[in-house]
Write a protein that binds this DNA or RNA. Structure first.
Length: 256
DNA sequence: ATGGTCGGCAACCGA
């Protein structure tokens, strides 16, 4: 079973890239973030000719998550149970007996802002969500743009980025608290190299070519699932396309 | 070097 996570930065702008990528890579499940489209305007017609089915939850302009799957999707839920639900940031489902949780975690703006407080709280609420919906012994795969680089090797300049909302000690701790519930970072299980990133800022000149990046997109699995993970890798080739997203897909393979 | 680039949509927005 092959599962991927990709922040598309607009599903409509990245339509052809996504369709080509599905055709070439044939994942069983593709989780996308930042679809940036409300449900009524989701371009479902473009996926009619594929072997995929889909679920999505969006809003106007911002956020938005979706799951494409070759197999039946059941037990769908969007957002938290309590307010604010943030439905366009969290979508979960069961596919072939595996629980899939796809998240687009708030970026946080700046460490001094209320948005950063909100981001930190979001991890606490997500931990509660896992506690209330699953057991660590169950097969759960948590993917998405988590907007956190967990370790020093996950950013281009760890010494100078500890004030950044995606590498701040508090946000790394907040992520760690959720991971400790029962997740394994399956990318790090397979690859221990530094300089392996999934995001390069559009605003920095030649950031991709110079590898000024961040590993913000993740695939984590509960122990029983992680044991079955045979490979996990980042697809940088997609950046060679015209008008690429600032993120690239991360892919994991499981021997079920 | 207080810069720079996207996408969506009319917000000196959010990332």
């Amino acid at each position: 079973m092959k599962i991927a996570s990709f922040n598309v930065n607009s599903i409509r702008a990245r339509m052809n890239i996504v369709l080509e990528w599905l055709d070439k890579n044939q994942p069983d499940i593709l989780c996308v973030q930042e679809t940036k489209v409300q449900n009524d305007d989701f371009p479902i017609g473009a996926f009619d000719g594929t072997e995929y089915r889909w679920i999505f939850k969006g809003q106007k302009s911002y956020n938005g998550v979706a799951i494409f799957s070759r197999n039946e999707i059941t037990k769908v839920k969007c957002g938290f149970d309590d307010e604010p639900k943030d439905e366009a940031r969290l979508i979960k489902a069961e596919i072939n007996g595996v629980n899939i949780v796809n998240t687009y975690i708030p970026q946080g703006y700046s460490a001094e802002s209320e948005k950063f407080e909100y981001k930190l709280e979001w991890f606490g609420r997500l931990l509660k969500f896992f506690e209330e919906n699953f057991q660590p012994g169950e097969p759960v795969i948590w993917v998405g743009d988590l907007n956190v680089a967990p370790e020093k090797i996950d950013v281009y300049d760890p010494a100078n980025l500890s004030g950044h909302v995606c590498f701040h000690p508090q946000v790394r701790k907040a992520l760690e608290n959720v991971v400790r519930w029962g997740f394994v970072d399956v990318f790090r299980m397979h690859c221990h190299k530094s300089g392996e990133y999934t995001f390069w800022d559009y605003r920095r000149k030649d950031s991709f070519e110079r590898n000024i990046g961040w590993r913000l997109d993740h695939i984590l699995a509960t122990e029983s699932m992680a044991e079955k993970c045979t490979n996990c890798y980042i697809d940088k080739k997609i950046r060679l396309k015209e008008r690429p997203s600032d993120h690239v897909p991360v892919i994991a393979e499981f021997d079920l």
